[in-house]
Amino acid sequence: MDNLKIAGLNFDILWKDKNKNLIFIEEKVKNISVDLILLPEMFPTGFCMEATEIADRNEETLHWMKGLASSKKSAVCGSASVFDNGSFVNRFYFVKPDGSYQFYDKRHLFTYSGEDHSYSKGKERVIVEYKGWRILLQVCYDLRFPVFSRNNEDYDAVIYVANWPETRIDAWTTLLKARAIENQSYVFGLNRIGTDGNNLNYPESSYCFFADGSIISETENHFVSAEFNSDELKKYRGRFQFLDDRDSFEIF
């Protein structure tokens, strides 16, 4: 398992403007070289409940991500509004450089904003394998539900993509750290910044935590960067074997 270099782009998503958002991303990532490019929740449009207006109907975002992954020789992941099989979903794509991909449909829909009225919840917990790393995919509100992200020694890292506003930002930071500690895993939480179409503000608040709860990420020019170190993770888990004492849960 090689070390994994990740760059998350926490930008001010233009409301419901796919074309300009994708152009902006292409320009920003032009000169970076990493193993994984991470984009926020609903990065093409912002966290918008007008699914009939904004949702992909012909896998437009997926095709764009495949092109970016191929040109950058890097995996690309982030979520988008998608119409699939008769319903709308908040779909988190993980696209590899060779064009293969997996996706996770957001399980916990944010009822406070009416997401449950616009989108259908996912039915599967998804772990992807990339360069020897097992990565659990999660989206925003999933962060509040620890049983769903419980590490059954089946993953090494968790990625959360989000549109988590300033009014509840302490919960975001605290829970990211908690998930890293309780699951003895890397946790990368990528939030957007700026102001959305609902006039909600999003401060700089993206981080990567190591398994002991320490912050290992650095932020510069919109990018939050971190490196997953396999030797350090194995050493930490070997020294503190807390997962052996975990409870078991039935998720579905």
Rank of each mutant, 00 (worst) to 15 (best):
N3L: 02
A7M: 11
G8Q: 04
F11N: 06
N21E: 13
I25P: 01
E26H: 06
E27M: 02
L36M: 14
I37N: 00
P44V: 03
C48N: 15
M49V: 14
M49H: 06
M49N: 14
T52P: 00
R57T: 15
T61D: 12
S70M: 07
S70N: 09
S71G: 05
K73V: 03
S74V: 08
G86V: 09
P97K: 05
H108V: 15
F110P: 00
G114Y: 12
D116G: 04
Y119M: 09
E124R: 10
V126L: 04
V126E: 10
I127Q: 07
I127Y: 08
Y130M: 05
K131A: 08
R144S: 14
R144T: 10
N152S: 12
D156F: 02
Y160C: 06
Y160N: 09
Y160H: 13
V161M: 04
V161A: 06
A162W: 00
A162C: 15
T167I: 14
T174C: 05
L176W: 02
R179V: 00
A180V: 10
I181L: 04
S185W: 02
V187D: 01
N191D: 15
N191S: 14
P203I: 06
A211C: 11
A211Q: 12
G213E: 04
I215Q: 02
E218K: 14
T219S: 12
E220T: 12
E227F: 02
F228E: 02
N229Y: 07
D231F: 09
D231P: 00
L233F: 13
F240E: 08
F242A: 08
L243V: 10
D247R: 12
S248C: 06
